[in-house]
Design a protein around this nucleic acid. Structure first.
Length: 427
RNA sequence: GGAGAGAUGGCCGAGUAGGUCGAAGGCGCUCGCCUGCUAAGCGAGUAGGGGAUUAUAAAGUCCCCUCGAGGGUUCGAAUCCCUCUCUCUCCGCCA
């Protein structure tokens, strides 16, 4: 959410930012509601002031044993008037906050302007695509033939876009998430947390998934609870409605959680393999930082995520998202796109964003510069470090051998119970 | 799931026959004084949000709201009523 006063005074900037995002929001209604709200506040508060003054006069009269019936009668009428105005004000404020919650974040100046992902800009690449003296195969073929990925049974148990990992495939998933958690906690200074994976609607409003994107979420029946689409939601909300001390910043958290997405608008997209599932595992990095440092922190966060692929020795590139491709809450985002030789292209494996104070204002996360200073909003950031399922896909495709087996990356060997490579499951 | 108790400022904790209570007191914290140093002591300050005012901002001043959340009763509610949420204790069930 943006600051109400700031929006009032910078309507043209907001309008332009929304257009750059290829979205529409009608700001004339905002202008009307905002003006009406302030008019009403002035009126109703004047009346309330009078009520307070006269009520204390009544108290004095009562104490002195003197009659106050005329004043009480007058206040009874005033009370009715106040009630009417308060109701009207509440309606206006509801409508206004609905608009405010629907306005996306303002992209940072450095974000490339463009209508969609075609305007994204490649910032850097790392490593090189592996060379094969055979035709590399996609991970789903490899996984199915090795008997470690079972899409058919997963569809039987749940539905399409789920997977059942078998044996060393399951271990590879677990190895990757342990490797990532160890890397970020031991070498990058993150504190590991393990949060609830069901969250309430207030948390989802805090990070920006609600009210706008309810269709993307799985909701628990008859409860105000949703399956998390990303650990960003519970972890960012750790400090909802809190005021941190300046010395508490920056805070770095990492979390492994499963993630659940309805993929409502994704029919026909990425229908094969591990790329776009209703349930997937992810290690998430979340930062709470001082506003002055958030863009430096974004660079470091992205570097922390990249480190995973570097250690796995898998080629990738980093892309700056354009205004048209940028997420609703983000001010700036780098996607890390991993090379998938069997699939024959790059695929997003991490999305690292600076939300500035957009989430902090929604979730009311503040800090004090000095012990007595006025609280200010922190800046929040997060990024995948990394999505596990897509990393499995990347390992399978990049480490595949001519005979259909998969070599195990050096850094994963300590996590693989002595296995040197993935061979077909025999039972 | 059943029964009971509770929810007040960063923390602890007063405050129920409704009337200067946004709230005593203590701790903590900030600033100052005092003191070779430290401790102790003394003084002052110390919730959040919103609105008005000033050409903008900071500061200031005035006002409104908030004593878990939302509603109600009343001229007036931390105090009374209703609903919800959470915490604790006991019982039941359960990994």
């Amino acid at each position: 959410m943006l600051d109400l006063k700031w929006v009032r005074e910078n309507l043209d900037i907001v309008q332009k930012a929304i257009e750059n995002r290829n979205m529409k929001v009608d700001l004339t209604r905002f202008r009307e509601l905002d003006a009406e709200r302030r008019r009403l506040i002035v009126d109703v508060e004047q009346l309330k002031n009078r009520r307070n003054v006269v009520s204390s006069e009544i108290a004095k009269l009562k104490k002195a044993g003197e009659p106050a019936e005329d004043k009480i009668a007058a206040m009874r009428e005033l009370g009715e008037e106040i009630k009417r105005l308060d109701e009207r004000l509440a309606e206006i404020e509801d409508a206004l906050s609905a608009i405010m919650l629907d306005i996306p974040n303002i992209p940072d100046k450095s974000v490339p302007i463009g209508p969609d992902e075609s305007a994204n800009v490649v910032i850097r690449t790392w490593g090189e695509p592996p060379k094969f003296d055979f035709e590399p195969r996609p991970h789903w073929d490899l996984g199915i033939d090795l008997g470690i990925l079972d899409f058919e049974r997963a569809a039987k148990i749940a539905k399409a876009r789920f997977v059942l990992y078998w044996d060393i495939g399951a271990r590879l998933e677990r190895a990757l998430l342990n490797f990532m958690l160890d890397l970020h906690t031991k070498e990058h200074g993150y504190t590991e947390v393990f949060p609830p994976i069901l969250v309430n609607s207030a948390s989802l409003v805090g990070t920006g998934q609600l009210p706008k994107f309810a269709d993307d979420l799985f909701k628990v029946q008859n409860e105000d609870l949703y399956l998390i689409p990303t650990a960003e939601v519970p972890v960012t909300n750790i400090h909802r409605d809190e005021i941190l001390a300046a010395k508490d910043l920056p805070r770095y958290y990492c979390a492994y959680t499963p993630c659940f997405r309805s993929e409502a608008g994704a029919y026909g997209k990425d229908t094969r393999g591990l790329i776009r599932h209703h349930q997937f595992n992810k290690v998430e990095l979340v930062k709470f930082v001082h506003p002055d440092t958030s863009y430096d922190e974004l660079e470091r966060l992205t570097a922390n995520a990249e480190r995973v692929l570097q250690l796995l020795n898998i080629h990738y590139r980093v892309v700056a998202l354009s205004t048209g491709d940028l997420g609703f809450s983000a001010a700036k985002t780098y996607d890390i796109e991993v090379w998938l030789p069997g699939f024959g292209g790059y695929k997003e494996i991490s999305s690292c964003s600076n939300f500035e104070d957009f989430q902090a204002r929604r979730a009311n996360i503040k800090f004090r510069e000095e012990p007595k200073a006025k609280p200010r909003f922190v800046h929040t950031l997060n990024g995948s470090g990394l999505a596990i399922g897509r990393t499995v896909a990347a390992v399978l495709e990049n480490y595949q051998q001519a005979d259909g087996t998969i070599a195990i990356p050096e850094v994963l060997k300590p996590y693989m119970a002595g296995a040197e490579k993935i061979t077909p499951r025999l039972f």
